[in-house]
Design a protein around this nucleic acid. Structure first.
Lengths: 339, 339
DNA sequence: CTGTTAGCGCGTTCAC
DNA sequence: GTGAACGCGCTAACAG
């Protein structure tokens, strides 16, 4: 499946050259590096370009120069506002540097990630950003062979492909759990997103247990629930926890909008937050700040992650030496009214 | 700014051909149309491909065949969950058809849209989806000359570039206002997103006024407020309306999360919704269904818009005749507790 | 500063 | 069913 890119009578660089009375090479230079050409030539070329509405063919340019200006991005799900801030930041940085963005959605599936990366490499992207750090073996080989700079994000892997910009899911979850402990909560529930094929979720759960241990609280598997994303899932999880463990005094939702769903459920049932049960969330959605009560959460600098990832790629493309970079952007605990 | 796409010793089709003991042409065929090659050849080629981890160079392929497999998408803002559902749908359809997606963010600026489209056309995308229907003259020329299929969305323009898949902002806003009238509300406020460079916002406002007229209600300019996006903006707008027009009994928020911000503000102030003031929103964010009270809103089938837009492109690329298509996907009024 | 030559890695086209 | 020749539109490398 593919389509004609343009009709037959497309205007080429030679056409422009002919009409400007110069060589194609001069046109090429006038367009890509105007300073390298005399003003007279430049004017002639510019005039012809405007007159015919010439658009250079970047495909041909890329093939010839062996350099592309497209960066590939693979994310687990486009439909997740968390990533939107990151993508926006990536897009801004790339654009400021004349680069373009090709986005692919892996749907949280590892094998799909592999085929997407291979498709992106076939398109000869000049860099890759992967929001995922657990990869198939073949993906690792593909990437290694391609010699394309890669930034991984989403977590801090033990064995990075190349560069990494992320925060530690373990530290963050541990930090929030400890925070709740410090506030005096003693029976802290934990609701996680699906753990399968998702090391980010697993790290968060590990962090939760580590903090319990630090706090000298006993780990009760019954206080941990796995939930799909979404408001209802959060609501259901909260209700189940409260009903099965009436002594519960706080719940930490380690994912997407779960906490808000739970909060709404409390409003519906008239359970005071944090009076009956405190609520904490992961990720600083705008929503959380404005909800009533405002929700305690972890602020992950998603925008910064995007920006710095893109900047690292840009630097590499500009010739920065190939060295492993590992940036931990950290996180922040935002204490609000819900805890 | 651009980067080496790969190191020098990249494997080419000729390399594979040599090692498989066949001609490059056979490799090409074995990969793009396996059925056109004898099983023996196919096996030899496949073996060599796997052995060397060969990845065809789609850049070269596109240049040679004059067909690309990348679709360009321009949206006003990546950071807007409304578009996420649409993008996801587009991405799914394209992927199922072997196409890729290049995303650009115009930041709601018309001149940026123009330069982005021209960059995408330079990349020789095989199709374009534009979430915007008001374009610069040069953009219209660019697109016309390129002969690339285009789908516009976001509203139903009087003078489409090519194909259109959208709903009518006018009809939707009018429908909701009429709905509020039918429910008995008589002093209906209206909060719009910025009107500048945004025909979608303007259409919505027109729809609001048209409905007031239909209802025989007087149009009071003081009941109309322009607000930036975001929760706070919605909250502020509501408070201002209620304070300047104490008799107000409903407010229709024609944009993004404004309604939710207002609802939260009501919770904070103890204003009953819909007792003191009814609230209606535009666009069926998940959030609205789960808020307390659940918010009356317009359901715009964003996912359908994305899916059908992509399908139209795919059909064209498959050879469907070039005819103007205009699909109105409609909308639905979702009556909930807030009105 | 400008032009010439020679590819980039494929697919189209036409022979066989 | 397979191969050889040619060209896609541009840029690297070198010569002038």
């Amino acid at each position: 499946m593919a389509g004609k890119a343009r009709r037959g009578n497309d205007i080429t660089m030679s056409d422009i050259a002919r009409h400007a009375g110069v060589s194609p090479m001069t046109v090429s230079r006038a367009l890509s590096d105007p300073a390298s050409v005399s003003e007279e030539m430049r004017k002639k070329v510019d005039a012809a370009v405007r007159r015919f509405g010439y658009l250079p063919n970047r495909i041909a340019g890329s093939l010839s120069s062996k350099r592309s200006n497209v960066v590939g991005l693979v994310i687990p799900s486009i439909r997740n506002s968390l990533y939107a801030a990151m993508i926006q930041a990536i897009s801004n940085v790339l654009r400021a540097n004349g680069l373009h963005l090709m986005i692919a959605d892996s749907g949280h599936r590892l094998d799909d990630e592999e085929s997407l990366v291979s498709a992106l490499l076939a398109q000869r992207v000049c860099g890759l950003i992967l929001h995922n750090t657990k990869h198939s073996q073949r993906l690792r080989e593909l990437v290694a062979r391609s010699d394309v700079p890669v930034v991984e994000t989403g977590s801090l892997p033990a064995r990075p492909l190349d560069m990494v910009v992320s925060y530690s899911n373990f530290d963050a979850a541990r930090g929030m759990t400890a925070h709740l402990g410090r506030l005096g909560y003693r029976k802290i529930g934990f609701v996680t997103l699906p753990l399968r094929d998702n090391d980010r979720s697993r790290e968060r759960r590990r962090g939760y247990f580590a903090a319990l241990k630090d706090l000298g609280l006993s780990a009760d598997e019954g206080l941990v629930l796995e939930a799909d994303g979404g408001f209802s899932a959060g609501a259901d999880a909260l209700v189940r926890l409260v009903q099965t463990h009436p002594a519960i005094d706080a719940v930490f939702f380690a994912g997407d909008v779960l906490a808000v769903g739970a909060l709404f459920e409390c409003q519906r049932r008239g359970w005071a937050v944090p009076g009956r049960v405190a609520i904490a969330s992961f990720d600083d959605l705008d929503l959380l700040r404005h909800a009533v009560p405002a929700v305690t959460t972890l602020h992950i600098p998603r925008e910064e992650i995007g920006r710095r990832s893109a900047e690292l790629l840009v630097n590499r493309l500009r010739g920065a030496p190939r060295e492993k970079v590992r940036i931990d952007v950290g996180f922040e605990i935002v204490q609000r009214e819900s805890s």
